[in-house]
Amino acid sequence: MAADYDAPRNAPDGDENTISIEARGTKATGLAADLDEGDSADGFELDAAIIDDALDVVVLPMQENEFTCVECFLVRPRIQLDHESKLGPVCMECAAL
């Protein structure tokens, strides 16, 4: 039996289980549904010592035996070089795709 899914759905009159949209109210969805009443951005405080340690990162320059793949933009060791394209080196993982 074919059903017309575009046709408006009308609830039978006198249905006790039917609740209007106004009566149901709005319900939070997504991230708002996961938050508790007391949650706010101001409620999270981090210790200054933890912040300083977490942001202390040493960045090394690219080594002689490394290359940057032009497809995924990751720095890879030369052993993972598949081929050189017009744009530059391509790693084995990107060449397999």
Rank of each mutant, 00 (worst) to 15 (best):
M1F: 06
M1R: 08
A2N: 11
A3V: 15
D4F: 02
A7T: 08
R9P: 00
N10W: 07
N10L: 11
D13T: 14
D13H: 13
G14Y: 06
D15V: 12
D15W: 11
N17P: 00
T18R: 09
I19S: 09
I19D: 08
I19H: 09
E22T: 07
E22K: 06
A23T: 10
R24P: 00
T26P: 02
K27G: 04
K27Y: 08
A28I: 04
T29F: 04
L31N: 08
L31C: 03
D36Q: 10
E37K: 15
E37G: 09
G38L: 03
G38E: 09
D39R: 01
D39H: 06
S40M: 05
S40W: 03
S40N: 15
D42Y: 06
D42H: 05
G43N: 14
E45I: 14
E45G: 07
E45N: 10
E45P: 01
L46T: 04
L46G: 02
L46P: 00
D47G: 06
I50T: 08
I51P: 02
I51F: 10
D52H: 07
D53K: 10
L55M: 11
L55V: 13
D56E: 15
V57Q: 13
L60S: 13
L60V: 12
P61Y: 01
P61W: 01
M62L: 11
M62T: 06
Q63N: 13
N65L: 04
E66W: 02
F67W: 01
F67I: 01
F67T: 00
T68L: 00
T68N: 01
C69D: 01
C69Y: 01
C69S: 03
V70W: 01
E71P: 00
C72D: 12
F73E: 15
V75K: 05
V75D: 09
R76P: 00
P77W: 05
R78L: 14
R78M: 12
R78Y: 03
D82K: 09
H83A: 14
E84Y: 10
L87N: 10
L87W: 06
V90A: 02
C91N: 03
C94S: 09
A95Y: 03
L97F: 02
